[in-house]
Computed example of a mutant assay.
Amino acid sequence: MNRYLASHVANLPPSGIRKFFDLVATMKDVISLGVGEPDFVTPWTVRESGIFSLEQGQTMYTSNAGLFELREELSHHLATSLGLSYNPLDEILITSGASEAVDLVMRAVLAPGDVVLVPDPSYVSYAPCATLAGASVRYVPTHAKEAFRLRVEDLTQAYSPKAKLLVLSYPNNPTGAIMQREDLLPIADFVAKHDLLVLADDIYSDLTYAGAHTSFASLPGMHDRTLFVSGFSKSYAMTGWRIGYVAGHKDLIGGMTKIHQYTMLCAPITGQFAALEALRSASEAKTDMVTAYDRRRRLMVHGFRQMGLDCFEPLGAFYVFPNISITNLSSEEFAEELLKEEKVAVVPGTAFGPSGEGHIRCSYAYSTEQLQEALKRIAHFVKPRLA
């Protein structure tokens, strides 16, 4: 029945993360460092709010844009935490996870022939979403020697006159890199010069371990050019609740809302009530989780360096991206052989773009005990290959 599939869907590669972890499902006693999901449960006050909403019979549709009360709270949160001003009436859209928000941005602003500039390596969804919107992708390489920051020099080399949208995802998945205000200002000049829109995926903004996060939308002249995407999955351990959001100029949000109302209708109401409570009461729980991630971050960097692998120090998100090229194995070979020999699952760096070759991604959103055992097994795997 493949012949019935649209060619652009049939030719779309499966997720480099999910494809690899189909193998994991067939094995026992595997330590998985693959999925970017908090090992914490959603804070109790948040869960209780969701339960209470069900007990009160709140099981209906909400407005297409989402509960107004949640949009109001988000408007206040973004203003106080990031200095961003969005009108809750028409500049914030609640989505079914940040992933839907990314898809909506792409489908609302891209047309066939448009080009999207995507930092490489970066999250696996950006290029496929651009393809499904009829656009093409130009990867912009980033490098460990530059702390995986996006640079104007590399943007200039990748630029096409057909470019319409630049993706910015910092803190970055998979590298854990961050970009500070002084790093972003030249990018803002480039965006203005070439009349680009920006998809700023700030889903990991709360997981920053060196200074405060700077939102691209807060830079001079960038507010209306930026579509700010985030959600509750990572910061509040709410992956299964599927609540994200996008904020931006009302004309662009209006376009996305039209697509959203014909496809998703609205985000799950129970998750929206839970997200509202997360903003109101879960800041302390969020801080505790970030503190735990920071300890694990340092453990992982030290562990990889101690076994002889060069490991960039991530300053955001909850991933490390060690360089394994010294083993003379490709990223795919390393991940497959490590899984078979030591029963540790990691993601090949190439799942995140061509520049990921020579690296693997390891999530440290797991218990310290699991991480220590995983490092022990990886070191056992690596040692004979460094001799």
Rank of each mutant, 00 (worst) to 15 (best):
T42H: 02
S53L: 11
R47C: 11
F52H: 04
T59H: 04
E37G: 06
E48C: 01
L33S: 02
E37P: 00
T59K: 00
G50N: 14
V41D: 15
R47I: 15
T59Y: 00
R47Y: 12
V41S: 09
L33D: 03
G34K: 04
Q58K: 06
E55T: 03
F52P: 02
E55M: 01
S32P: 04
G34V: 02
Y61E: 10
G36C: 08
S32H: 08
F40M: 09
L54A: 03
V41R: 14
P38Y: 06
Q56L: 15
G50A: 15
Q58C: 00
T59G: 09
L33V: 01
F52A: 14
S32N: 06
I31D: 05
G50M: 14
Y61K: 13
S32M: 06
D39L: 03
P38I: 08
S49I: 06
T45M: 04
G36L: 12
E48W: 06
F40Y: 10
F40Q: 08
F40P: 01
D39E: 13
M60C: 05
Y61L: 09
T42I: 05
Q58V: 01
S32A: 14
F40D: 12
S32T: 11
W44Y: 12
Q56Y: 13
T42N: 04
L54I: 11
G36V: 06
G57M: 00
L33H: 11
W44A: 13
E48L: 03
L33N: 07
P43S: 11
P38W: 07
G57T: 05
P43D: 09
I31K: 06
I51K: 00
G36Q: 04
Q58T: 01
T45R: 13
V41T: 13
V46C: 14
G36H: 10
G57E: 02
F52Q: 09
D39G: 03
E48Y: 03
T45G: 15
T45F: 07
S53Y: 09
M60L: 07
V35A: 11
R47F: 08
P43N: 08
S49D: 07
I31E: 07
S32D: 13
G57H: 02
